[in-house]
Amino acid sequence: MHRDLSHPIETGMQTFPGDPEVAVEPAATHDEDGYHVEAVACGSHTGTHVDAPAHTEPDGKTLDEYPIERFVFDAVRVDCRDLGARDPIPADRVPDVDADLVAFWTGWDAHWGTDGYLDHPYLAPDAAEACADRGLAVAVDALNPDPTPSPNAGGDEPEGFRAHHALLGGDCLILENLADLGSVRDRFELRAYPLALSTDGAPVRAVGVTRDE
């Protein structure tokens, strides 16, 4: 069973505050040119995407430094749907399992395209450190494993990109803006091949694969 866990890339889609806007527009049409071509303008962290260490670590690896098989993960899904807006995901939610990646299922993709999407649950710094200590990449169905700036931010929230630094500094990849994690099982294979860019991140087509038991 294959499940698409990606948001479609389209004009005006939601991005991290301050990131480049997304535009998908015709550059050639059947009527005028006899063929169709779309012009796509977007940032490297558009939609469902992977973060390479170079995103936050000055000497971190770029995507082209990883073999293609690094983007196929033995994944464990952790249900965090009981958490509310801007709640931290605590370290005791990090599973001690033999896996490549933990996918934190917050259900926050239901808010995609709204202001409320900015107010997702986030990884507490010690939870991110626990993932890094266990060599686990992290996937979230939210904009960010760190708190995203918004008017609703609390004064006690961790500042900056502490989860990013813990994970990417430990060579653990991050996948953001996954969708429909409810369609996969608690143990699944996540395939998330990035565009062939030698950069700090890239959009992916994230696919969850589960086998019939």
Rank of each mutant, 00 (worst) to 15 (best):
D180W: 13
L143R: 04
P147C: 09
E38P: 00
T15C: 12
A103G: 05
G84I: 06
P17K: 07
T199P: 00
L123K: 04
K61F: 06
D146H: 12
E38F: 13
H55L: 13
F188W: 02
S44L: 14
D133A: 15
D212L: 11
V140I: 09
H49W: 07
G47I: 01
C42V: 08
T29R: 14
G60R: 13
D133E: 15
T199W: 11
L173Q: 14
E32W: 04
M13F: 08
D59G: 14
A128R: 03
P125Q: 07
H7T: 06
P149E: 12
V138N: 08
I9T: 15
L143V: 11
D141Q: 10
L143T: 02
P58G: 10
A28F: 03
G107A: 01
V24H: 04
V50R: 04
R86Y: 10
A99H: 08
A127L: 01
R81A: 05
A137Q: 02
F104A: 08
L118W: 03
I9N: 05
L63R: 08
A127C: 04
G60M: 04
A85T: 06
D51I: 00
G160T: 05
E69T: 10
L143W: 01
A132R: 12
P194F: 06
L5F: 14
P145V: 11
M13Q: 13
H49D: 12
P20I: 03
F104S: 09
A179K: 14
A163K: 08
A139S: 03
V40I: 15
D64L: 07
I174L: 15
D96H: 12
P121K: 00
A206S: 02
D115T: 02
F104C: 07
P158W: 12
A41H: 15
V209P: 00
Y193K: 05
D141R: 05
G107D: 04
N144F: 11
C42K: 13
Y66I: 02
T11F: 01
G43Q: 10
E157R: 13
D92A: 10
R185E: 14
R211D: 07
D4L: 15
L143G: 08
D74C: 11
D186I: 00
D109F: 04
A23P: 00
H55D: 10
D51L: 15
